[in-house]
Design a protein around this nucleic acid. Structure first.
Lengths: 252, 252
DNA sequence: CGTGCATTTGACCACCTTCAATAAAGGTGG
DNA sequence: CCACCTTTATTGAAGGTGGTCAAATGCACG
């Protein structure tokens, strides 16, 4: 049974007791209140949302939702790291994004979810019914505008990523990745300057960058040998030469 | 001077006389009125928009706007084909999308345009001031919702494209491309069933698919030899075996 | 201290790119 | 209308970047 849990992360007996009704106080403390879509809502509007939202805790390596599944809910990441990905029938995988506190997912889909979402670390989520959100979008212009702004920003990043996948080499891809993660985690503010925490595996990074595990590992080694980064304490990466990193990332 | 025109498509002495005020009747005839963002507007709202919009005609191979430039306008394609692309400093290019009648561009940017737009064929455009559109978004919920829907759809397609660029091989990429163009041009309804009109060059297709001209050309030849498509009359492609095309595109 | 998994490293290989030549198509001027 | 030139597309041969396969190392956990 322990093995089943590992290979089929859908098993999560802890789920039941980890689901709790959302309270106003939990909304007050939520990071989404200041940086995510909820920041466009007034206190009384938040109240309406919190009434239909629940807090969910999940252990790492669990499935939150699967590609193709009916899209019932929208999720906001409150703590931890989530990956969203798409798959080809033979198992080739493309990771679309790594989500950190304040990010949400589940809005962008037509009919069913167009990607799977899985936890990378232990995660706290806020789960809202999708159709209720769509109602709010129609009713509250400021909310609609905020969602649009976030979606546009997401589209910009995805277009940047297409330039990476279509035209950058392995080294340039990894440098771009490190800078992206650095910028995002420093924005959420839970890392020392120029220190990057990488909760995801080499396989995840590879599937995000359109490379293999081996190529990612080799490029890490090369960047460390060239004194551009340091890999001293494992899941942490220290950026030594950020200018050089930026130069490589942008294609020389 | 003629040479300048070729290498620097920014020169377009015909532009002045090809710019005309937008009229209500031109809005009535515009394809955007039924399929694009304008479909969310009532007649009197269209009137307000048409007052601040102008119609622009451009010859093929002209620059509409350049990456990094101040984003003043939003454009709606009324006829012809436009490509939008991003570049690396050394000239490597990634085409983000080919735009057909009914498509618009210029909304998604932060500060300046994040991509260049160039005409592939002769093109008719509707040009609107960007900040006026942003005002309308705030004022008219139905308009805001429509823009959001279009943006979400765009994001879905861009994510699908990331799976292509990150994980598909050359043959799968070209098959996916042919199916995408086929679906889009049949939606606008100006092509015979299973006939695809490809106004863009091999170089454009290559830069869209993250490949080289030669690889694209070779894959075309292979698909034709395998009787999956036919290349008889040049810019037109006929799909012979669409099921096979779909099978290859989705990774076997 | 041994097992299991992730990561690193090495050797070889394949797909796509690069370079180069040829063919076809398109545009211009005589 | 044809000759000439330019541009674009096709095809071939050689080369390189990243993939595949395999082994070794490191690390966490019982």
């Amino acid at each position: 049974m322990d093995l089943m849990k590992e290979t089929h992360p859908v098993f999560d007996e802890a789920e039941d007791k980890s689901v709790v009704r959302c309270s106003l106080t939990s909304c007050e403390k939520c990071i989404g209140r200041s940086v995510s879509m909820c920041s466009a809502l007034k206190d009384d509007e938040i109240k309406l949302l919190s009434d239909i939202s629940i807090n969910i805790s999940k252990r790492s390596k669990q499935v939150i939702c699967a590609e193709g599944e009916m899209a019932e809910y929208l999720y906001n990441v409150q703590s931890g790291c989530v990956r969203i990905s798409k798959m080809l029938s033979d198992g080739r995988r493309q990771i679309i994004d790594f989500l950190f506190p304040g990010d949400y997912f589940g809005l962008v889909c037509d009919n069913g979810y167009n990607y799977s979402a899985e936890t990378i670390t232990d995660v706290n989520l806020c789960r809202m019914p999708r159709n209720a959100i769509l109602e709010k979008i129609k009713e509250i212009p400021a909310f609609s505008k905020k969602i649009l702004d976030i979606t546009i920003h997401e589209l910009l990043e995805t277009q940047e990523q297409r330039l990476l996948l279509g035209r950058k080499n392995a080294k340039e891809r990894l440098c771009s990745f490190l800078l992206t993660i650095n910028a995002r985690s420093s924005k959420v503010g839970f890392m020392k300057k120029n220190h990057i925490f990488l909760p995801m595996s080499r396989a995840d990074i590879a599937d995000y960058l359109g490379l293999t595990i081996e190529t990612v590992s080799r490029q890490f080694t090369i960047l460390a040998k060239d004194n551009i980064i340091s890999l001293e304490n494992s899941p942490l990466v220290r950026i030594i030469d950020i200018e050089e990193l930026q130069l490589i990332a942008s294609g020389g």
